Simulated scan of single mutants.
Amino acid sequence: MADQRRPSSGSGGGDRRREGQGRGRPAGASSGSSAGRGRADDRRGARGEDRKGPRGDDRKGPRADDRRGPRADDRRGARSDDRRGGDRRAPRTERERPVDQATYDGPPLPEDVTGKELDRSVAAQLRGLPEKLAARVARHLAAAGMLIDEDPETAYRHTLAARARASRIAVVREATGEAAYAAGHYAEALAELRAAKRMNGATAYLPIMADCHRALGQPEQAIKLAKSPSVANFAPEPKAEMTIVEAGARRDLGQLDAALRTLELAPLNNKSRGSWVVRLRYAYADTLEAAGRATDALEWFHRTHAIDADELTDAADRAAALEARSQG
């Protein structure tokens, strides 16, 4: 699931999902997802604090104070303290409650979304939940998958609702992280994908995590992830994604020559017309232009356009702009 995400083209900044790279689908697109512990923790916090707060303190307080002062004063003090709140922990405000409830409820679920749209491997991870709970989580994840391209923010809210119900399931945290990434919530995406990785040990999230570091202004961390030993064993597509992110991080640091070397070690001449080759070539052309090598950049924009049947990039426009500039 995570390997379907599309990190940035490697250019030096801005929207990490630009350049026609596409968003792919989060785990929720073909899976189900669970959003945080917020509601459960809030319930434990409020009730637990109330139980041991005022009553327990009131029972202990008068006896200790009796030794020091008049009982009447103690009663007056206790009553006035109760009116002001005393040691009682202030309950959540009316403004806070709807936010928590809204997150837990999530956006409205389309009636035609049943949860059966999820991939079997994802649905299998939800089987440990009670039946009704699993069905609700699955529906939120399926809805997120359907919306991820056209409305990533709503998709993200669906995954938060799923996470609120099943935060200990890795695929739920994965879906939440990928939807957060698509919606541009990079810190949240990084936290969720780290949680998923701790749960299942998967390394497929590394390119997205590295790109999140770039978006957060942490290119050194992106490069560190790109050098992870597991990357050497990646399949061609996720390896290409990581190469693109690493080259972008080098550019963020002003290391254009290092960015070019990183891309030149990738299979730029691969005969595949897959989207990953398109993005590799585009990133290389873009970096060549940034390095002032306009002639070489023009060649690679043309080579990108030649295999970009789905128009994932604006390579044709970039080539035309370079040609017009050279003629002018």
Results as ranks from 00 to 15, higher is better:
Lys116Ser: 14
Ala161Trp: 07
Ala143Val: 04
Val122Asp: 12
Arg95Pro: 01
Leu190Cys: 05
Arg157Trp: 08
Gly184Glu: 06
Arg139Ala: 15
Arg95Leu: 12
Ala180Trp: 06
Asp73Ile: 06
Ala144Met: 02
Ala195Trp: 10
Leu129Lys: 06
Ala182Cys: 08
Val99Met: 08
Val99Leu: 13
Lys116Thr: 13
Arg165Glu: 09
Ala162Tyr: 01
Val122Lys: 13
Ala179Asn: 07
Ser167Asn: 13
Val99Cys: 00
Gln125Ser: 10
Gly106Val: 01
Arg127Val: 09
His158Gly: 02
Tyr156Ile: 00
His158Lys: 09
Asp74Trp: 12
Arg97Lys: 12
Glu111Phe: 03
Thr114Lys: 03
Ala135Gln: 13
Ala166Val: 11
Leu193Asp: 02
Ala138Asp: 03
Pro110Thr: 06
His140Asp: 08
Tyr104Thr: 07
Ala189Arg: 03
Arg84Gly: 13
Ala196Ile: 00
Gly106Asp: 00
Leu118His: 10
Ala187Arg: 15
Glu153Asp: 13
Gln125Asp: 09
Ala195Gly: 08
Pro91Ala: 15
Thr103Ser: 09
Arg71Val: 11
Leu141Ser: 12
Ala155Leu: 07
Ala138Tyr: 03
Leu126Arg: 03
Leu147Asp: 10
Gly85Cys: 05
Leu118Ile: 13
Glu174Thr: 12
Arg71Glu: 11
Ile169Arg: 09
Gly85Val: 08
Leu147Lys: 04
Glu94Ser: 13
Leu133Arg: 14
Thr154Val: 07
Pro98His: 10
Ala179Arg: 01
Glu192Asn: 11
Leu147Ser: 06
Glu117Gly: 15
Asp149Arg: 12
Arg97Asp: 02
Pro98Cys: 06
Arg165Met: 14
Pro152Leu: 03
Thr176Gln: 11
Thr103Gly: 09
Tyr104Glu: 08
Glu96Trp: 00
Leu193Ala: 02
Arg89Phe: 08
Ala134Arg: 12
Ala142Tyr: 06
Thr159Trp: 06
Asp119Asn: 14
Asp74Cys: 04
Ala124Gly: 11
Pro107Asp: 07
Thr93Tyr: 02
Leu147Val: 02
Asp149Trp: 04
Gly115Cys: 05
Tyr181Trp: 11
Val137Gln: 01
Pro108Leu: 01
Leu193Val: 03
Gln101Asn: 07
Ala123His: 10
Ile148Asp: 13
Ala166Gln: 04
Ala78Trp: 07
Tyr186Asp: 03
Arg127Met: 05
Leu147Phe: 08
Ala195Ile: 10
Thr154Ser: 08
Arg95Ala: 15
Ala78Thr: 12
Ala183Asp: 10
Asp105Phe: 04
Lys197Cys: 06
Ala182Thr: 06
Gly145Asp: 04
Ala143Gly: 01
Ala164Gly: 05
Ala166Pro: 08
Ala189Thr: 11
Ala72Arg: 15
Gly77Lys: 15
Leu160Lys: 11
Asp105Cys: 03
Ala161Val: 05
Leu109Val: 08
Asp73Leu: 14
Val122Asn: 13
Glu94Arg: 14
Glu111Met: 05
Ala123Val: 10
Arg157Ser: 10
Arg88His: 13
Arg163Gln: 06
Thr159Gly: 02
Arg165Phe: 01
Glu192Thr: 02
Ala162Cys: 08
Tyr156Pro: 01
Glu150Cys: 01
Thr154Pro: 04
Glu174Cys: 10
Ala162Lys: 01
Ala191Ile: 00
Asp87Lys: 12
